[in-house]
Amino acid sequence: MGTSTRDLEQFLARAADGDMDAFGHLYHATSAKLFGIVLRILKNRAQSEDILQEIYVRVWERAGDFEPGRASIITWMATIARNRAIDALRCDKRHDAVVDDFDIDQLADHDDLSVADEAERNDDLRQLEICLGGLDDDRRTMVRLAYLDGFSRAELAERFAQPVGTIKTWLHRSLKQLKECLGS
C-alpha cells in the first residue's frame, strides 16, 4: 500500500472537516482491509458490501473522535468494522442469513500456517501469538474463531460439543490467562 499511516490520518482529519475528496482517498486506501474483515465474518458478499457502506458512513460521522495517541488509525477503523459486522451477523442469524460458499481453509483453526509470517511483521501480534500458544489447543481455537470469524457462544458450544455455560467459563479462563501473559 503506497499510503502511509500519516497520510491516512490526514485524510481522516480533513474528512472530519467535511472534505469528501479526502474521505474518498481514505476509502480507496482502506476498503480492501475493512472488506476483508467484514466478508470473513459475514461470509456473504452482497451483505458485506452493504455493511461496508454503513461502516464508512460511521467512520465519516465519527472522524472527529479519532485520537492518534490511543490506537493506530487502521486499528480504529478495523474496530468499527468488526463491531458492525458482528452486530449484523447476530441480527441476521435470526433470519437464516445466506452464507456464500467460502473456503474452509480461511477458518481460524486452519490459520496456524500463516502465523509465522504474520508474527514477523508485527511485534504485538507475535507477543499475542506466544500467549495464545500457552492456551490449550481447543481454547486457542475458540478465541480465534470468536475474534476472527464472529462465532457466538452458542456456535462455539455446538462446534466443541459443550454446554454454553462451559464455553463461557472456558472463554473467561482463556481471556484471563491471556491478559496475565500480556502483562497488562
Binding site: F35, L39, E49, A108, V115, N122, D124, L125, L128, L148
Partner: peptide, 14 residues
C-alpha cells in the same frame, strides 16, 4: 490486547 489479531484478516476487494 486483541486487535493485533486483525493481522490475520486478508485484504479483499469489494
Amino acid at each position: 490486547r486483541l486487535s493485533p489479531l486483525n493481522g490475520h484478516y486478508r485484504d479483499e476487494m469489494p
